[in-house]
Structures are given as structure tokens and as C-alpha cells.
Nucleic acid binder design. Structure first.
Lengths: 245, 245
DNA sequence: ATAAAAACTTGATATAGATCAGTTTTTTTG
DNA sequence: CAAAAAAACTGATCTATATCAAGTTTTTAT
């Protein structure tokens, strides 16, 4: 009986920790896949990859282009998005130590299915796709870890999908603010290096709506905003807004 | 109904299936993963799985429940959806020879992230999750194939995501009608064995909206509808509506 | 076969959030 | 440093689609 109760409690804690349904899409899973490689394989990877620095707002890869590399964010911040006919849909954010286009690891994908852009100056490791696939073949522990990451990504996208479709703009913007504070900057106060337009894209709404809601949140004392400077004042209330959509 | 299922399969074999931005989500990846197993491994899989028959509208698995099996559709048709607080979001349709909850293959996922329900009577293979994971460990070809399937699933969801967010209800419903006629039934005229409510869920809108738009499409001579009987009269115009959102 | 339940349809109304058209502030540039 | 450009902001208006409420038709159960 006690065991059951404890497992329920720990499950609830975990669920709470992962902040179940959020529009904000940052990988929660820390990337452990390279640990699964032997030192020779790590060397092989090193020999078949380069690190490239992208400037703020620089495009990292374009949807539709032929896959040449698997990209891994060493340092920086980027967005991954789909665009069709000047309509953009932001899929996820890429913080350090995350893959940008892991779908390209699949042999069936020969073109990138989405674009990515650096929010800030970013160092990105580009791994030869053939080398990466070779490692997948050779090392099933590594492959299994990649499966874990792909799965986690899917779940995240599902959640964002759900939130963008079902939540109201207030809930979505609350999500984004919480996500930035808790998962990206790890601070109550942070300087957000992106435009209001980018925030709008993150929260899936128009710039004007972002501005209006930010103002309302400020007025209610939930946050403090001044130009690019953000500060979260009332987590509890924000989380309530996020929950109610 | 068997005719329907067969037409889904033959649709999937067609090449042009892969390049299409549509709200309609029929699984793209044809499952070759079991071919990668040795005969002993296939036997092992057989020994560690059972086939269960689900009736029409029966729940196959519930979001939040502990993962016990990896489920594989042998025969039938099902939907996979997320639901939070009586809000449902249909993620994808599962035709024969597709996994229902592959994300559960990941060691990090101990609860199902979505529910599924049989649209029609369906035979589903339930594979012990520990056995499945053992095979992933043992056989990197198998693992690689699973990576391919997970990747294809992601891409597919992204497309549905994009359409549901960016297209208007007219475009989304046009998508669904085209998808049914061209990709599933292979006929201009077909009998649709699901309720208006299910169509609404497919197209991501309310029942009343579905009914109103169906009526408009009828009035304009694009389709003919009577109860469950559908007929497409003007593909070109429907496709235009789909493209313009 | 008939009653009850469920699914479908219609019209009226409400509303979240987009769109538009400006003004102000901040940033960039020569 | 001033001028131009870009970004941020504000208020007014519009619209697609949800919601509600009341029918009608179809399906299911007895």
C-alpha cells in the first residue's frame, strides 16, 4: 500500500515538474546519447563534424533543402519552424545540447522538413549524416537513445499542438513566459533577445495581441515588462492562467 | 469496410502520398521493421505478444495509463487523440500495419501520452514493452527502422499541425473530403462510416460548422451529401479551397 | 413496431482575436 | 548626432467560428 502511494506521489511530482501541457516547446530530455558511444566512436564523430558559428537571425537550414548534416546546438538558441506561403509556424526552440533536425537521421528523409534560425549567436555542430547513420547501425545503445529523444520530441510537439489549438491566447502567452523563465533562462528576470513579433510566433498569435496581453499581465501584477526586460512576479497566477487556457 | 482498409494500404504505396500538406493524417511509414529481425527474434516477438480484437468505438488505450504494451494495428482502423478536460484533439489515423503508440517504445515514457479508439472492429497486436525494448537493444537494424518510423510520424504530425493552425475551416474540410475520396476510398462517391462529430474532430472544428460548410459545398455544386453518402463533384474547386486555406 | 435516445440540422447570437490605420518609441545608419 | 527605418504600441473595427437553443431525422432498444 505504501509503495503504491509513494509511486503515485512521485508520479504526480514528476508530472508537475514537466509542466504537462505547455505551448512552449523546449526539450526537457537532456541529451545523453553521446555518452553511449565508445571512445573510438566519439573520435569518429569528432572527425566527421565541424562546429559553425551562426549570427543572430541567421538561417541555419532551409525547409526543402537536401539533408547533408545532423545539427546539434552546442551553444546558443534557435527556433525550428515550418513555412508555407509566408505563413510561419514555430515548432520548437532549441537550447544548448539539443539536436536541431533529428528527423533527418532517418534514411527516408532526404530533405529537411523545416527551417531553423538562430535567435542569438550560436555554435552548431554539423555532423556528416552518413557518419551519424553509421553510428546508428553500429551501436544500438546509441540508436536507442536517439529513439528516446525522438519520442520526447514527439510528445512535446503534441503538447504544443494541443495548446495552440485548444488554449486561448492568454493561456498560450502565460505558457511562453513560464517556459522562458523556468526552462530557458532559469531566472525570474531575464532579458529577452527577440522581438515582439518573435514572441507572437512563439505563442501563435499576432503582435498586437501579444502587446495587449503583456500589458494586461503587467497591470495585474503578474509580470514586469519594459522593452526587452522581463520579470515574472506571480508564478502561481500565471500557471493558473496557463491551466485554464 | 475491408475495401476501405485496402484502399488505404494501396494509397500508402503510392509515391505522391509523401509530399502533401493536408490536415488529413493517414500514417505514411510502411512498416518494414519486423523484416529486420532474425527468425529467433521474430519468434520471441510472437511469444511475447497477443492479438486482441476491439469493437467499433472501443477504447484501445487511455492517455495517462501506465505503458504495458506496444500496440500494432494488424487489421482495422483507429484514431489516436489527446484529450484534456473533455477537449479532444485528433492526432492521427491508424490504418493496418502501423504502430499505435510507438512513443511508448522509449524508456523515458512510462505512461501513454495519448488515447486511441477503434473506428471499426480492429485486430491489434499487443507486444510486451520489455520484449520490444530488448529487441531494440539487440538489433540495431531494427532500432534504425523504428527511428525511420518515428521520424515519418513526426513529419506527418507537423503537416497536420500546420494545416489545423493556418488554414480556415473551409480549407480544412476540403482537405478531409479530398483525403477521403482520393486517398482512402479511391472513389468519387463513398459511404462514410463515421459521425458528423468524428468528421468535426478530423477537421478540427465544431459539428455545426461541419454541417454548415458541407451544405455550402453542396449548394455550390462541389459535393453531394446525403446522410452518410458522399460524392465529390468538383475536385478542382475543392483543391483550390484546400490550397487557399 | 414503437418509443426513447442519439445524431443531425438550422437560425440567432456572442466573442476572441485578427486586421487596419495610425502614433510613439527605439534602433540603425550615414 | 540627426535622419531614416524598424519596432513597439494604441484604439477602432471586422470576421470567422464558437456557442446556444430549438427543432428534425435517424438509429437503437424493447
Amino acid at each position: 500500500m505504501l509503495a503504491t502511494i509513494n509511486s503515485i506521489i512521485s508520479y504526480m511530482e514528476k508530472e508537475d515538474y514537466y509542466n504537462n501541457y505547455s505551448s512552449c516547446t523546449v526539450s526537457a530530455a537532456e541529451c545523453k546519447c553521446f555518452d553511449k558511444l565508445t571512445s573510438e566512436q566519439q573520435q569518429f564523430l569528432e572527425d566527421n563534424s565541424v562546429i559553425i558559428t551562426y549570427k543572430k537571425n541567421e538561417t541555419i537550414n532551409k525547409q526543402g533543402a537536401l539533408v547533408s548534416h545532423i545539427m546539434y546546438m552546442e551553444e546558443g538558441l534557435a527556433k525550428v519552424y515550418m513555412s508555407i506561403k509566408d505563413e510561419n509556424l514555430l515548432l520548437k526552440l532549441i537550447p544548448p545540447h539539443n539536436f536541431i533536425g533529428l528527423v533527418a537521421a532517418s534514411e527516408n528523409e532526404n530533405v529537411y522538413q523545416y527551417s531553423s534560425m538562430a535567435y542569438v549567436e550560436s555554435k552548431i555542430r554539423q555532423i556528416e549524416v552518413s557518419a551519424f547513420r553509421k553510428l546508428l547501425n553500429e551501436n544500438s545503445d546509441f540508436a536507442k537513445e536517439i529513439i528516446n529523444i525522438l519520442s520526447a520530441n514527439s510528445v512535446q510537439i503534441y503538447n504544443r499542438f494541443f495548446c495552440l489549438i485548444k488554449k486561448h491566447s492568454y493561456g498560450r502567452l502565460a505558457d511562453i513566459i513560464l517556459c522562458l523563465a523556468e526552462r530557458i533562462f532559469y531566472e525570474n528576470a531575464f532579458s529577452l533577445p527577440i522581438s515582439r513579433q518573435e514572441i507572437a510566433e512563439l505563442a501563435g498569435m499576432r503582435v498586437e495581441t501579444v502587446i495587449r496581453i503583456l500589458k494586461e499581465f503587467s497591470k495585474e501584477g503578474l509580470i514586469k515588462v519594459s522593452n526587452k526586460e522581463f520579470e515574472v512576479l506571480d508564478y502561481e497566477q500565471l500557471r493558473k492562467i496557463s491551466d485554464n487556457g
